[in-house]
Simulated assay, not measured.
Amino acid sequence: MTPRLTPLAAEHWDERARESLRGKVSLADRYLSGAPDAPRMPNVLGVLGHHAELAGAWLSYNGALLERSALDPRHRELVILRVAWRTRSAYEWAQHALIGSRAGLTDERIEAVAHGPDAPVWSPLERVLLTAVDQLLDRHGLDDGTWAELVRHFDPRRTLELLFVAGSYLCLALVFNSVGLQLDPDMALPPTLPRPDTEERP
Score class of each variant (00 low, 15 high):
V44F: 10
D72K: 03
E92N: 10
E111G: 13
Q95T: 13
V83E: 09
R158A: 15
V151Y: 01
E108Y: 03
V47N: 01
V133T: 15
V121L: 15
E77M: 01
P120I: 12
H115T: 07
L125F: 13
R157P: 00
L59V: 00
T106E: 09
T87D: 04
W122F: 01
A90G: 01
L66C: 03
L125P: 01
L48G: 00
F154M: 11
P156W: 11
D37T: 13
D118I: 07
L136T: 14
V83T: 10
L81I: 06
L45Y: 08
V47S: 08
L162R: 06
P73N: 04
A148F: 04
H50K: 11
H51K: 13
R40Q: 14
R158M: 09
Y61W: 14
G116I: 08
L71K: 06
V79N: 00
V151E: 06
G63P: 01
R139E: 13
G116T: 05
I80P: 05
H75T: 07
G34H: 10
R158P: 00
S60W: 07
L32C: 03
R157T: 15
H75S: 12
L45W: 02
H50Q: 08
W147Y: 13
R158E: 14
V128I: 09
L78G: 11
F154V: 07
L150Q: 08
D138G: 13
M41C: 04
E149W: 11
S60E: 15
A114P: 02
E53C: 02
S101F: 11
R158Y: 00
W85P: 03
T146L: 05
N62I: 01
E53F: 05
N43Y: 04
A114E: 04
L136H: 11
H51Y: 14
H115I: 00
H96C: 00
P124L: 03
E126Q: 13
V83A: 10
W147T: 12
A70G: 15
R88M: 03
E92P: 02
A57N: 09
S33A: 14
M41Y: 05
D134G: 06
D134L: 02
G104Q: 08
L130Q: 12
L54G: 08
I110R: 05
H51S: 15
L150E: 05
L65Y: 04
A64M: 13
N62H: 10
A35N: 11
D155A: 14
R82E: 02
I110W: 04
A94L: 01
A114V: 08
G141Q: 12
I99H: 00
V83W: 12
H153A: 15
G49L: 06
T146W: 09
L136R: 14
N62R: 10
P124V: 04
R157K: 12
T106Q: 05
H75L: 15
G100M: 13
I80T: 11
W85T: 05
D37M: 03
W85V: 07
T87H: 07
W147K: 05
L78C: 11
T87P: 02
A90Y: 01
D72W: 01
D144Q: 10
L130D: 13
L160F: 09
E111K: 14
R82H: 14
L81K: 09
E53T: 15
